[in-house]
Amino acid sequence: MTEARSSELDPKQVLGNLVIREEFVKPSRRVFVVDKSVIREAITRLLKTYGETSIYISTIAGVDRFEQGVIEVNYFISILPRKEVIVLRTQLSRAEPVIDTLIDIVPGVFAGENETYDLLGVQFNGNNTLKRGFFVPEDVVGKGVYPLRKDAKW
């Protein structure tokens, strides 16, 4: 498969059977909801298809969906040849929010994963740079509080 052709591929085709459902975020950015267990596979497929120098992870946004008992972790990925930003959305249980790390595949998640861990308490398996107090001050850490959660009290 030549570079030129693969860069035109629709991400939906690349992710294929990993996608549980599609949603969208304004302005018409596609959201692919995937199971948290396949996040590494999804990213690896995207990197292989488009090439390491043609995509990057732009933002990792964690959201505490208190009512649904879920913490969402959204990976916003910019696909340069398609000039498109897609979202890989995973949902973790609020009681035990754990997901695999991407840091060995994409070292640039260092900042985002540490932030999401420190502020929301999402555990990224395999990332041994994670530490509390990366951003949150000592006294809040001492109370075991994850400040960005909706029920956080300090």
């Binding site: 949150v136 006294d139 809040v140």
Partner: peptide, 9 residues
């Protein structure tokens, strides 16, 4: 602008 309430950081 990270995080909500952070006392002394």
């Amino acid at each position: 602008p990270i995080g909500p309430q952070h006392p002394a950081l």
